[in-house]
Structures are given as structure tokens and as C-alpha cells.
Design a protein around this nucleic acid. Structure first.
Lengths: 155, 155
DNA sequence: AAAAATAAGTTGAAATATCCACTATTGCGT
DNA sequence: ACGCAATAGTGGATATTTCAACTTATTTTT
């Protein structure tokens, strides 16, 4: 076990632990603020963060089962099922039962869904720019590397 | 404007953008997974992540108005108000109107709330250990520095 | 000292998310 | 082929979050 200064304070079991020294506390806080900012931009165009997550995933996958989308977005399946059908009602995605496997519901983007992605990316770009304008490329790279590592560790 | 490899792909307005190259997408995903793992540990002891955020903040502040807690936790005030009163009903916190300012409701930890913090920290410690065991102290430090910077940028 | 503006909180209705139990379909082992 | 386990999804009851409008208290203007 290491004995560094950070390690000690970052571990919640240590008495010296505070939210200020906790990576996960900062993580939750930053994500919360990001969602707040995104929502402010997305609301006026009838969109929100969960929808955007789905659109982004489908933009890449073209056609994916609900379970895969739920897994990639880290949203529980019952929640995702309902979100997908809401989005279908809004014309953003279309669904159909898979020909290969009668259990799976395949979801794909509609024309309107594609347009929605482009529309939201402009907004997302603004926030990204604001958030990372003074962060070096190398730092962003390192940042993402750690997030991936931690994600895999608790996956 | 910079032209690095990461920058281009990380910006949502760039056609080469994918969730895989987006810091914010990874951020949301990691936070989601973390909440999932925490919930699994917290549910059996009648706790959850929002409650834990509040407990942690009060552990530091001893006595804070709802608005401050809401701000620190990045949770909207109506949500926080209801959460606080739920927690009061559960005996975790106590509330009273401030003597100095009749508008503010001061919240503080009860005995049971303190015990709850200690109890949850054990669980949080397990997940922290699992998540960061192979991450260097220096990396954690850099990680948190970037999160703070980004947080301030979009605050 | 009002009047106006701001800040803190509260509440009810509506939107969402979550739990849990259930169905339908497929895969696996013998 | 048969039965059992696993997978994908659905549906209802419940819990939580959010919006929008409102109340009350304080601060700032004029």
C-alpha cells in the first residue's frame, strides 16, 4: 500500500478525507454541472442529456439493441426502454424487432435524429470550448486515459 | 486556436467527433458507473449517492443553508429541499430557521448522520480502492487538477 | 421610509427514473 | 429433443427530480 499525500486523503476511509480531496466527489460535481449547462442549452431545442447520449451512441452504431445502448450509456434497461419509446414518439429514432433474435429490439436514428445530432453538437461544442479552452491536448489525453482506466477497474 | 490531434476529435462540432474521443462523454459514463456501484453498496444500508453527497458536505460544514448544500452538490434547490426533509424524516439531519436571516434554513448532521458518514465511508473506500489501486498519486493529483480547472471554467 | 429588486425556500403538478416481477426467446448441457 | 438457465425486454407501482409559480424575508434604490 502506498503512503503518498494524495492517496491518504483521497481514500474515504481515511479520517483526513474530505470532499475536496475526493476524486469521485469532484467527478460527480463536474458531471452535475456539465449536465446543468448542457440542459440550459438543450432545453430550448427540446432535447436533454440522456437523449443526447442515445443519439451519439446511435450515430456511431447505426443500429443497436436497447441493451447495448443502455450498457454504453450506463443507464438501466427499464429506464432506457422507456426513453427509447419516448424518443420514438418524438420521431428521433425508430425501432423494430431483430430478424435474427426475436428478443432484441433494434434501434436506429431517423432523419430527424440525425438532424438532432448536428444541432446538439453545435451546443456541445460551445460548452466544450468553454470548458477546455485552456487545457493542453496532452492534459486532455491524460485525463481521458485515467477515466478509461478507472472505468475499466470498476466495470 | 490549437490544432492538436486530440483537440480536433474531442470537439463535438468536428465531424471526426465520437463518444470515444469525448471527455464529457467519458465523464458522464464514469460517473454513471460509479453511481451504479455505489448504489449497490449503499442500498442495503438504506443510503444512496445524493444522500451521501449531502452527508459529506455537512461533515465539513457542520451547519449550512440548503442553498449552499445545493450549490456544493450541484443539485437544484427544489430537489435539495425535498431531499433534506426526507433525510430529516430519516433522522440523518436536523433543520432550523436561521436566527440571523429568516429566509435561510440551516441544516446540520445528527448523531445518526455522523454514524451514517462513517458507515458509508467504508463502502466508498472499497470502491475507491478498486477504482484507483493502479493509478499513481501524481496521476490522481493531475486528474483532480484538471477537473477543478474545467469546473471553474464552466461554473 | 416606501418601493423595487433580489434571495431563500416551498409546494403541486408533471416528467423521469427505479425497483421488482413477469413474459418471451434463445442457448446450453445431456 | 428436452429441460434449465440466461438474455432482452416490458409493465406497473413507487420514488425522485424537475419546472413553474408562489411566499416570505432581506437588501437596495430612490
Amino acid at each position: 500500500m502506498r503512503r503518498g499525500k494524495i492517496w491518504r486523503q483521497a481514500n474515504p476511509t481515511n479520517p483526513a478525507f474530505t470532499p475536496e480531496t475526493s476524486p469521485f466527489f469532484h467527478l460527480s460535481r463536474l458531471t452535475g454541472l456539465y449536465h446543468l449547462r448542457m440542459d440550459a442549452h438543450l432545453k430550448p431545442i427540446g432535447m436533454d442529456v440522456p437523449r443526447w447520449r442515445v443519439l451519439n451512441i446511435l450515430y456511431e452504431h447505426e443500429c443497436a439493441p436497447i441493451s447495448t445502448i443502455a450498457d454504453l450509456a450506463v443507464i438501466r434497461m427499464p429506464t432506457m426502454t422507456k426513453l427509447i419509446y419516448r424518443m420514438e414518439g418524438e420521431g428521433l429514432v425508430s425501432t423494430r424487432v431483430s430478424a435474427k433474435d426475436g428478443r432484441v429490439t433494434e434501434v436506429s436514428l431517423t432523419e430527424k435524429g440525425h438532424a438532432g445530432v448536428d444541432q446538439v453538437r453545435v451546443k456541445a461544442g460551445l460548452i466544450f470550448e468553454r470548458a477546455f479552452h485552456d487545457i493542453e491536448d496532452g492534459e486532455i489525453e491524460a485525463f481521458m486515459k485515467i477515466m478509461k482506466k478507472v472505468y475499466d477497474n470498476i466495470y
